[in-house]
Simulated scan of single mutants.
Amino acid sequence: MTNEAAILAEGLTKHYGEIRALNNLGLAVQPGEVFGFLGPNGAGKTTAIRTLMDEIRPTAGRASILGLDTHDKSVEIRRHIGYLPGDLAMYPGLTGQDTLKYFANLRGGVDWSYVEVLAERLNADLSKKVGNLSSGNRQKIGLIQAFMNRPEVIIMDEPSSGLDPLVQREFQTILRELAAEGNSVFLSSHTLSEVQRVADRVGIIRGGDLITVETVSSLRSKAMRRVEFEFGSDADSSVFSDISGVSNVVIEGRRIVLSYDGTMDVLLKAAMDHNDTVVDITTHEADLEDIFLTYYEDSAEDKGGSAS
């Protein structure tokens, strides 16, 4: 295990003509870390992963995995990593077992007893043909092939797609076990609850730009809460428009739901000034999704466009 960053990107950029899919990406994932890479579809997550994996060449910048240049040493790197792309292609006529044996042979062989353990933990039926499996059960085969060589670095693009909640939970447990052994995970997702449960740090990307990188605990410690007001009459969209710290305002008839990171007395005064009847108030700590939306909204005010 190298003492260098498990994954390092320096100024990684990918443009398709006028389309800026990835802009000057710089980040480092440390050994033993689970790094969540967040953004909705089109934010640039998949472009970043494909560039890291040397599936596409960057317009500028460089990257390394386990200290090895991702272009010059791409074959060597693949001996040490597990990879689940967002669009893993498998032969529909092969069973799950045959598919995994095919991948195992490409790797020069794996410990098949570990494959069986993974299949049991993920409740994967390896006897059926891949073409007859649901999307969630095909995803289990993809997860097993990414884990089965006991990789030092795991890179995954939307790995929980189609998985039921119980399998998601077991998958997350496996990720934490691998990280505890000193392995590193780069997890691209728009499923915020998944990242919240397993990641040590989170990078948020929008329009090809990395907005921020913070620990999950730091994000959650931000003084933000979700507040719901119910008024005696229809709510006005301008009620909280001048209050600093208000974001993600949603109006539903007499109800206003918003995110807020200030003191409640300011918010309450504005509510009372708007309507002499405040029927109900509910507050709760914002989850990672609320925080994510706030970062994303703030960035949208400064930058337009989209990425691939």
Results as ranks from 00 to 15, higher is better:
V198R: 14
M148D: 07
M224Y: 07
R176F: 00
G131K: 03
A180Y: 00
S217P: 01
S113C: 07
T173Y: 08
F186Y: 06
L118H: 02
D200T: 09
M224F: 09
D125H: 05
I211F: 09
L210I: 05
L126S: 06
E194S: 08
H190L: 10
N183S: 15
R169C: 12
E158N: 06
V130K: 05
S189T: 15
E194C: 13
W112P: 00
F171E: 05
D164A: 04
G162Y: 11
L175E: 03
R201M: 12
A199N: 05
E214S: 15
S184F: 07
L126P: 01
P159V: 12
V185I: 15
L175I: 14
H190R: 13
N123V: 05
R201C: 04
R121S: 02
I154G: 03
L163W: 08
V198Q: 07
V195L: 11
S221H: 07
L163Y: 09
V153P: 02
T215C: 07
K129N: 14
N137I: 00
I154Y: 04
S221Q: 14
G131I: 09
N137D: 05
M156S: 05
K128F: 07
I205M: 12
I154F: 10
P165R: 08
S189C: 05
P159A: 12
T173R: 11
G182P: 06
E152M: 12
F171P: 07
T191I: 15
G136T: 01
M148C: 06
V130F: 11
L126H: 05
G208C: 06
L118R: 00
L192S: 10
I204N: 08
R226F: 13
G162R: 11
R220P: 00
L166T: 15
E194G: 03
A146Y: 02
I155Y: 06
L178E: 12
K128R: 15
N149D: 14
D111Q: 10
E177M: 06
I204W: 02
K129D: 08
P159L: 07
Q172P: 13
L166S: 14
E170I: 03
G131A: 06
E228M: 08
K222F: 00
F229G: 03
E177S: 12
V115F: 04
N183D: 15
I205W: 10
